[in-house]
């Protein structure tokens, strides 16, 4: 650095909200030094540790896995840990809580309604052999091709970016939104699952997929490439086929019989004892 060059800085505009006061959310500005590789989340930590310890947000893993740090950054819902300041193409970083959720404090949205919708669509394996499900004796059979029918949708980290981007959710609080519907399709297409008829009852009405009109914004902002818009269209295809009685119900995948005519190779050690 030459003597007359100034260190690079970045301006953060952060939407602040204190629930204790009666005032509306307000923008607050912070200027921090920029270093190469700084993410939006790193910048927030710089502010909290050195400028304003009262700033509040939600984050955990710092590597785009936990889905905690979804924020509205320069006009798009993104994971703050996954967003380099350099990729924003601006020296100003505008950070607000995810829209379409109530603000609890500063950058913390109330994700409760999203998880209520999620829970209502039974996002888990449903099948009649409950005893086997809870105390498994072996694996359920599933081919690679069968797994690929839902694998993409199972990468969802529930970061709520899709819900923040959905224009239907923006005007309709009853609509479940992209994440819960994509998860309904994830479990409906899992060959180990037998819950289609139960979920289809929950998918009726305004909370179901019929309010989606394919704006596709959920797929565009998803940080994990889950493509909820695709899941919702495929979910509707299955529901229409079922309504027209064109869907052929198949029994859930069976437990694989343990082969009894093979022996463990001597160089492979026994599995350690179960800890749970």
């Amino acid at each position: 650095m030459t003597a007359d060059s100034k260190p690079k800085t970045v301006l953060y505009r952060v939407l602040r909200f204190e629930p204790e006061g009666s005032s509306n959310p307000r923008w607050q500005e912070y200027t921090i030094p920029y270093t190469s590789g700084l993410t939006v989340l790193d910048g927030l930590w710089v502010i909290k540790e050195g400028v304003d310890p009262s700033l509040v947000w939600r984050s955990s893993c710092r590597m785009g896995i936990c889905g905690s740090c979804g924020m509205f950054i320069n006009g798009l819902p993104r994971l703050s840990c996954n967003t380099q300041i350099s990729e924003l193409g601006s020296s100003t970083v505008e950070v607000a809580p995810l829209p379409n959720f109530d603000i609890l404090r500063d950058l913390v949205p109330d994700l409760g309604p999203m998880f209520d919708h999620h829970q209502a669509l039974s996002p888990f394996i449903l099948r009649p052999d409950r005893e086997e499900l809870e105390k498994p004796t072996a694996e359920y059979y599933q081919s690679s091709a069968e797994m690929e029918r839902y694998l993409q949708f199972s990468y969802c980290i529930k970061c709520a970016s899709c819900i923040a981007a959905c224009p239907t959710v923006a005007t309709d609080p009853v609509y479940s939104g992209p994440m819960p519907l994509a998860q309904a399709q994830r479990y409906n297409t899992d060959t180990r699952d037998d819950g289609f008829d139960i979920r289809k009852l929950a998918l009726r009405g305004p909370q179901g997929p019929w309010r989606c009109h394919f704006a596709g914004e959920c797929s565009r902002v998803c940080p994990k490439g889950v493509d909820p818009a695709k899941a919702i269209q495929l979910l509707r295809r299955d529901l229409v086929a079922d309504y027209l009685r064109l869907r052929r119900p198949t029994p859930p995948a069976a437990v694989v019989e343990k082969p009894d005519d093979i022996a463990r190779r001597p160089d492979i050690p026994e599995a350690p004892p179960a800890t749970v």
Partner: peptide
């Protein structure tokens, strides 16, 4: 919820973000 309402409403149909 005791939070501040932050639903985009009809504003979210046209702007309120850098959409596709």
């Amino acid at each position: 919820s005791r939070g501040h309402p932050n639903r985009l409403g009809m504003r979210g149909w046209l702007f309120g973000g850098r959409w596709g």
